[in-house]
């Protein structure tokens, strides 16, 4: 089930916006495609453009780039993923978050899909 209240990209990232700060992760659909994550290359704090490469997720047989759903400044990364990359699989919408972005234009969220639209998107993909 795709959680309500988050926004989604066609690259299978989600973003949850609270007080102008977006928390970013990958969707359940994405983590299933990737297989068990063995390593997360986390971003460094600093400015990031929308759709720019943010992080890399590696499994034993695949690698996947994570793109920034919206522009802003990375202010925090999920350091727990350094020792427990499997959180991306196990709790992709909660403890498996990747980073937090202080959004430069929170209104740009209108470019993203809501839960219903994303659900329809992955059904058709």
């Amino acid at each position: 089930m795709v959680p309500q209240g988050l926004y989604y990209t066609d690259q299978h990232e989600w973003i949850k916006i609270e007080d102008g700060v977006g928390t970013v992760g990958i969707t359940d659909h994405a983590q299933q495609q990737l297989g068990e994550v063995t390593f997360v290359e986390l971003p460094e704090n600093g400015p990031v453009d929308a759709n720019a490469e943010l992080a890399v997720l590696e499994s034993s047989k695949a690698a996947s780039d994570v793109y920034a759903p919206m522009a802003g400044e990375v202010i925090e990364v999920n350091e727990a993923l350094e020792s427990q990359p499997e959180l991306v699989n196990q709790q992709c919408y909660t403890d498996g978050w990747i980073c937090k972005i202080k959004l430069s234009d929170p209104d740009a969220v209108s470019n993203l899909m809501d839960a219903a639209a994303y659900e329809a998107f992955i059904t058709n993909e």
Partner: peptide, 11 residues
């Protein structure tokens, strides 16, 4: 050997 744990190898 039987099938090997590649995830463990990478971690």
């Amino acid at each position: 050997v039987s099938r090997l744990d590649e995830t463990k190898a990478a971690k």
